[in-house]
Simulated assay, not measured.
Amino acid sequence: MTVSNQTNMNFTLKVLSFCAALFIISFNSYSQSQDSTSRPLISFDKIKFLENIDMTFDMRMGMQAYTFRGGDKYYNGVQFKNEHTALGISAKVHEKVDLHFRNRFNKGSDVQTLDQLGSNIELAYINVKATDQLNILLGKMNTFYGGYEYQYSAMNILEYNDIYSRALAYVTGAGIRFQAFENHNFGLQILNSRTMHYDDLYGDIAAYNVEEPDWPVAVVGNWNGRFFDGKLQTNYSASYSNQVKSRGTYFFTVGHKYQSKKFSIMYDFEYSYEQIDTKGIMTDIIQNDNVAEDVRYIENWMRAEYQFNDKFKGLLTLMTSSAYGNFENEKDHTRTSYGVIPTLYFSPFKDIDIRFYIAYIGRYYDYTDYAKETFNVSNYNKNEARIGFIAPFKIL
C-alpha cells in the first residue's frame, strides 16, 4: 500500500470515528432531554390508522434484444430497460370514502394544459360509497373501456395492440359504478376527452375545418357480467368523445373470458370510428401535414394462459389491427398489423409475487398495394426477445 493510500485510509477512519461519536453523544442528549412536548411522527394511538392504507410498488425490468427490418432499413440492439415502475397508494379515509393515487415513473411529468396534472400521475381520485350498490368516482381515473387487454395492469402487458397502445387511458372526470345484480354491474363516466388543449396536442398539424369545442368531453358506458359460477365473463363498453367541435370518436369493445382452474382464455374485439384521427396511425401514414379524418380501426386480441404447476405458467397472446382511411377511390383498407407474444413465467417463491419471465414479441406490419403506391410506405417487422422480472410489491 502506498503512503498516499495509507494516509487517505487513516483520514477516513478518523472521520468515521468522529461521526459515530457525535451521533452517540447527540442521541444520548436527545434521550435525556425528552419532555411532554416531544412526540413521535406517528404516535402509537395513530398506528392503527395504517391498517386502512395500502401501498404498492410495481416493477417490471428486463433485458431486450431486438431487430427491425423494413424497406432498406435494418437495425438491432441489446439493452436493459425499466419497462414499468409505479408507486400506488390507496386509503380508506372514511367509512364511505376511499382515495386512490398512482405515480408512473416511466411517464413524462410535464403538467398537461387541460387537466393540470402530469402524465405520470395516472390515478388521483376518490371513491364515495353512496349506497351498497352505488359508487361515485371523482378525479383522474382509468376510463371504463371494455375488453380484457385493457383490464390488465400495464405491468402485465409486454406489448399492447395498436388502439390501446395509443388510447388515452387516464383522464379527469366523474363516474358511477352500479351493482345492479349479484353478477352484473354497470359503469357510466363523463370525462375530459383529452388531457391537453387541441393546439398543444397537435400544434400546426390540423385540418382546415377543425375548431376547439366548448368542452372536449367523453361519455363511456360499461357492462361487466358473470355466468356459470364465474367461468364465463363479459366486459363490454361503448363510448363517444368529441376531441374537436361537432366531430368525435365512436368506440366499441366487446370482451369475453373463460376461466377454469388452470386455464383461461380471453378474446376482445374493438371497433373505433374517428371523424378526427385520435390514434394517429392514419395521420402518420398519409403525412400531408393534416390530421387524418374519417378513419376506422378494427382489432382482435386473444390471450390464453395455462398454469402448469405452482411455479410455471405459460401465456400466448395473438393480435391483429386493421386501419382504414377515407379515399375517393374507396380503396380504404390501408394497413394490417399482426402480433404474437409467447411468454413463460417462473415464480420461485410462495410468500411473495415475483415472476421471472422469458418472452418473444413479434410484430408485422403489412400495407396494401394502394398505400404503398400512394403514400410511399413499405412493410416492416419488429422482433424482440425479452428476459426479466415482474414484481407487484405490497409495501403496506
Score class of each variant (00 low, 15 high):
Met1Arg: 12
Val3Gly: 10
Asn10Lys: 15
Asn10Gln: 14
Leu13Tyr: 08
Lys14Met: 11
Val15Pro: 03
Val15Gln: 15
Ser17Gly: 12
Ser17Pro: 00
Ser17Phe: 04
Ile25Phe: 05
Tyr30His: 10
Ser31Trp: 02
Gln34Pro: 00
Ser36Ile: 03
Ser38Trp: 12
Phe49Asp: 15
Leu50Met: 08
Met61Asn: 11
Gln64Gly: 11
Ala65His: 13
Phe68Ile: 03
Asp72Phe: 08
Tyr75Asp: 14
Tyr75Asn: 12
Asn82Gly: 08
Gly88Leu: 00
Ala91Ile: 01
His100Cys: 04
Asn103Met: 09
Asn106Leu: 01
Gly108Leu: 07
Val111Tyr: 03
Val111Cys: 03
Leu114Val: 00
Gly118Asn: 02
Ala124Gln: 01
Tyr125Leu: 06
Asn127Leu: 12
Asn127Tyr: 01
Ala130Leu: 13
Thr131Ile: 05
Gly139His: 06
Met141Ile: 01
Gly147Tyr: 01
Gly147Ile: 03
Gln151Cys: 00
Tyr152Gly: 07
Met155Thr: 00
Ile157His: 05
Ile157Cys: 09
Glu159Trp: 04
Asn161Trp: 01
Asp162Asn: 13
Tyr164Ala: 03
Ala167Cys: 04
Ala174Cys: 09
Gly175Glu: 00
Arg177His: 09
Gln179Lys: 15
Ala180Tyr: 11
Ala180Pro: 01
Phe186Arg: 10
Gly187Ala: 05
Gln189Pro: 06
Gln189Lys: 05
Ile190Asn: 09
Ser193Thr: 08
Thr195Tyr: 05
Met196Ile: 02
Asp199Thr: 09
Asp200Lys: 06
Gly203Lys: 09
Ala206Asn: 10
Ala207Glu: 08
Glu211Tyr: 10
Glu211Met: 11
Pro213Tyr: 02
Asp214Ser: 15
Val220Asn: 10
Gly221Met: 07
Asn222Val: 01
Asn224Val: 03
Asp229Asn: 15
Thr234Tyr: 00
Thr234Cys: 04
Tyr236Glu: 04
Ala238Lys: 00
Tyr240Lys: 06
Asn242Val: 00
Val244His: 02
Lys245His: 10
Gly248Gln: 05
Thr249Asn: 14
Thr249Phe: 03
Tyr250Ala: 11
Phe251Gln: 11
Phe251Asp: 10
Phe252Asp: 05
Ser264Met: 11
Ser264Val: 03
Tyr271Ser: 12
Glu274Arg: 13
Gln275Asn: 11
Lys279Asn: 14
Met282Tyr: 04
Asp284Arg: 11
Ile285Arg: 02
Asn288Cys: 03
Asn290Asp: 09
Asn290Leu: 14
Ala292Cys: 02
Val295Gly: 03
Val295Ile: 09
Arg296Ala: 14
Tyr297Leu: 13
Phe308Gln: 07
Asn309Glu: 05
Asp310Gln: 14
Asp310His: 13
Phe312Tyr: 15
Met319Asp: 07
Ser321Leu: 08
Ser322Lys: 14
Ser322Tyr: 02
Ser322Leu: 01
Tyr324Cys: 06
Asn326Cys: 09
Phe327Asp: 06
Asn329Gln: 11
Glu330Tyr: 12
Asp332Trp: 07
Thr334Ala: 13
Arg335Thr: 02
Gly339Ile: 00
Gly339Ser: 06
Val340Tyr: 05
Thr343Arg: 15
Leu344Cys: 05
Phe346Ile: 11
Phe349Ala: 12
Asp351Cys: 04
Ile352Ser: 10
Asp353Gln: 14
Tyr357Glu: 02
Tyr365Ser: 08
Asp366Arg: 14
Tyr367Ser: 04
Ala371Ile: 02
Ala371Leu: 01
Ser378Thr: 07
Ile387Gly: 14
Pro392Ser: 07
Ile395Arg: 04
